[in-house]
Amino acid sequence: MDFVYSILIFIGLFVILASSFDLVIGHCGLISIAHPIFYAIGAYVSAMLSKQSGMPVPLSILCGGVGALLASALVSVPALRVSGDYLLIASIGFQLGLIELAKHFHEIGGAGGLTNIPSFLIKDFGRESYVVLVLALAGVTVLFIRWLTQGPYGRMMTAMRDDELAFSMLGRNAIWIKVAVFAIGSGIAGIAGGLYAHYFRFIEPDQFGLLQSSAVLTMVVVGGMRTTMGPVIGAIVLQLMPQVITFFNLPPSILGPLQGLLFTGLVLFFMFVRPQGLLPAADLWVGRKPLEGAGHSGKEARS
């Protein structure tokens, strides 16, 4: 049963990661693939706070989220002041640099990883309770991002993606919106990191590298960018698919490369055949409250 719980936890965590990453790269159009480093920051901050200072786990997870949120500004503020394009380079540098740094910091476990992270809920209420917590928070994340992107803030992000210059000329501050959305997305990833750390109770720097980045990116691309359910479906499909392969009883030497091939093949397939993903986004932004009165041609529903 533990195996099923682990899969469910992973699905929940990756729903949170993929949805928050879609907020950054899809809705806001910020090109960055360093999302997992904020997942890592959340995991490490929460693990260290609860382990070293005995902080209650829910509070430490929250602090992990805030830590990731603040850390995101270190990357986004300098990069976005110059141009959106620099964010990609700056964020990858930040991700790889921080991973290397963590490997050499023995206080946080170094390359060997951080062990004996305090658990939460499991001792008192069993593993099921943690599964419920993670899946519930995944649901809350999806609903929150839908609420944000279908409200006036979503209208702003859409316009900014369309034409940043015209957007600024209307009096809107594009840099601030980018920094804010990047921070929200990163903060949510940080909370997912904390949730990971206190369930598996072991984290190591190499978990949060480019492989993780490509996994989250694949989920968003395959599921469908700028949709509520796209990243959810992407996360579920890409978490389950490797599990299905394991049932074929293949030797490990084949299994590993096969999974890699599958992911890469999937991305290539979608790029050529269905670049909009499984769930295509509507090409007209429609806010959550349809305008009363004149309902002429804007009836395209938002997926």
């Binding site: 409200g151 369309d162 015209a166 009096g171 809107r172």
Partner: peptide, 19 residues
């Protein structure tokens, strides 16, 4: 803004925007 309706194009125009 091609991804927005005519109305939503205008909604972004006030000096102080709601959001």
């Amino acid at each position: 803004f091609p991804s927005l309706s005519v109305m939503d194009n205008l909604m972004l125009g006030p000096r102080v925007y709601s959001a």
